[in-house]
Design a binder for these strands. Structure first.
Lengths: 126, 126
DNA sequence: TTACATAGGGATAATATTATCCCCATACCA
DNA sequence: TGGTATGGGGATAATATTATCCCTATGTAA
């Protein structure tokens, strides 16, 4: 965490939603925790492309916003588990919908990447 | 546009969805265009907090991905209109859902910002 | 002793995104 | 001539986000 210098405008719902799930790995974390992957080490194995550092940071934010709850067992070696709160569960339909839309759009997406520079339509008459 | 150096991983739908609507003003633009605000100058007036520069950039990306279609009328002063494509319209339920979720969560959100540093739960017995 | 597993975070570098400012072109109007 | 409206973008600065590396702590097992 560091101090933000550009004040964020949270007047519309969209900006809040993005603040909550806008991190690179947050939706993945929510999904994984929901599927029963609860411990940090397990989450790290599940997302090898993400550094542990970032996963920790994003879990911390999710916890701060009440999306996940963290349970620390006072044992050694340490044991920690994350669970979705009610708020976190209420995000699941949204996360699912975003995942599904992206999957459906995937084919078009790759095509649009090929011809990235198409000319705009110019209407000659109107 | 500039060359990205960290290759993005578009293997899951979520990452694609974020690529499409992940910009700061993209959901706002999609929503506004859907509501009939089609011309760049109108969009700029509707979103005074955004610089025209960024709006242009994000409109360009939306166009490149086939979310909006740009129509240029060859007149002076210039006239341009943006419309949602089918793909763009298919995003509307998602955008609406994100907006609604954020609005519903808004109260909790402000509370969670007040006590941002809560202690994690420590289970003494398990 | 050494290594391992576990969870966490400091310090810094790299990259990505957005903000700011200022310029272009052109028809019209006063 | 000078100002206005319109759409667009270059150059650069500021900020935000993520990546990399490496260190802490501790009980257990080899």
């Amino acid at each position: 965490m560091y101090e933000k210098k550009i004040p964020k405008d949270f007047s519309c719902g969209m900006s809040i939603t993005f603040e909550i799930i806008g991190g690179k790995w947050k939706p993945c974390l929510i999904d994984s925790i929901n599927r029963g992957v609860r411990r940090p080490s397990e989450l790290a194995k599940k997302h090898p492309l993400a550094s542990k550092r970032v996963l920790n940071l994003q879990l911390k934010e999710l916890e701060a916003y009440g999306v996940v709850r963290k349970i620390v067992y006072p044992v050694l070696p340490p044991k920690v588990e994350y669970f979705l709160t009610e708020v976190g569960e209420s995000l699941l339909p949204l996360v699912t919908m975003m995942e599904n839309w992206g999957s459906d759009f995937m084919d078009d997406f790759y095509k649009s990447q090929e011809n990235m520079h198409t000319d705009p339509i110019v209407k000659e008459q109107f």
